[in-house]
Design a protein around this nucleic acid. Structure first.
Lengths: 186, 186
DNA sequence: GTCTATACATCGATAGAC
DNA sequence: GTCTATCGATGTATAGAC
């Protein structure tokens, strides 16, 4: 009687709103961390009501999981050092926000939800396997630590000259480090 | 009529209790971060009442500032790379807890309180001044990032093999990195 | 000096109206 | 599909008794 026109199905409308909420959640979790992010705040940022967020996601925890979910990162092939530098570059340029959600959330919340820990662990295994050395695991761990530290200082703490420096300069200075850690020498 | 004996003056008693509260606060902030730390929890850990903590420190924010206050770290003299490795070693062995309060708190809270940012900035300036290169500031920032990343992965995220590795092994693998970043080559 | 009692705010979550 | 109303829990902070 009313809407004959194929404007939007209910399902479409829902997916659209859900996507808006997820985007707002991602941004807020990245900026404030888990604890300081409120359902009300996310809802407000998405232009909807707090009750609706709960209705869609059920709980704050679930909303967080959905928002922090990342497409698993595949390691580029080639010389390990170069591949890792490429990986770092992507995290510096393409998706600083995505990196932030994971990094900040691991610190404010995720001691409990071991999701990230397994993901990080898998990444470490792959890196370690690509390094020809007896202490490959430790070397992989150090490379991961360096990447985390750079993202941390640059985007979270906004410390030092790292925040302003071009990604190219950072990569150039870090290249010897990565080669030393991932290189062929045992 | 009652206490003639010089057991403890009221001021002494207060300082003692205050110290106990501060120790508990430090440990709790390090473990849980700012948001998840509660006055009640700190008070309970210190064996006193929550009201007393407020009475002494006035607010959670003030308690946090006092607890996170660190003796400013002087940079060892000598070759910059060696001095920085020594600095890292101290943070790995001597006082992981102290490092954690600052690091974790910068992430869960301290975007606001710029105290740490100035402290870190001063440290960076000193490191930068010791590096003979045109881009000394960026190099100092990267070294700081590496140190932060290592402490982060080892003690906060407890990720990877970093958590279990002996400090000596970590330092040995990192030495070329530090030399490359703080070295004489421009 | 230390503790009890409580005011006041905020948040996550639920139930139900429209 | 979306919003209002509200419950229950928790936390900071205050006032005052002992």
């Amino acid at each position: 009687m009313s809407d004959e026109k194929p404007r939007r199905t209910r399902a479409e409308q829902r997916r659209e709103t859900e996507a808006r909420i997820l985007a707002a959640a991602r941004a807020t979790f990245a900026e404030l961390g888990y604890e300081r992010t409120t359902i009300r705040g996310v809802a407000s940022a998405a232009g909807v009501n707090a009750g609706l967020v709960m209705h869609y996601f059920g709980s704050k925890e679930e909303l967080f999981s959905r928002a922090a979910m990342l497409p698993e990162e595949e390691l580029p092939v080639g010389h390990p050092a170069e591949a890792l530098l490429t990986s770092l570059r992507r995290r510096l340029d393409d998706e600083p926000v995505a990196s932030l959600v994971v990094l900040r959330s691991m610190l404010t919340h995720a001691e409990a939800s071991g999701e990230f820990r397994v993901a990080a662990s898998a990444w470490l295994d792959r890196v370690g396997a690509a390094i020809p050395a007896a202490d490959a695991e430790l070397r992989a761990g150090l490379i991961s630590a360096i990447i985390n530290g750079v993202v941390l200082d640059r985007y979270l703490l906004k410390l030092s000259s790292l925040a302003d420096a071009p990604a190219d300069d950072i990569l150039a200075l870090l290249r010897p480090c990565f080669e030393s850690l991932a290189g062929e020498s045992g």
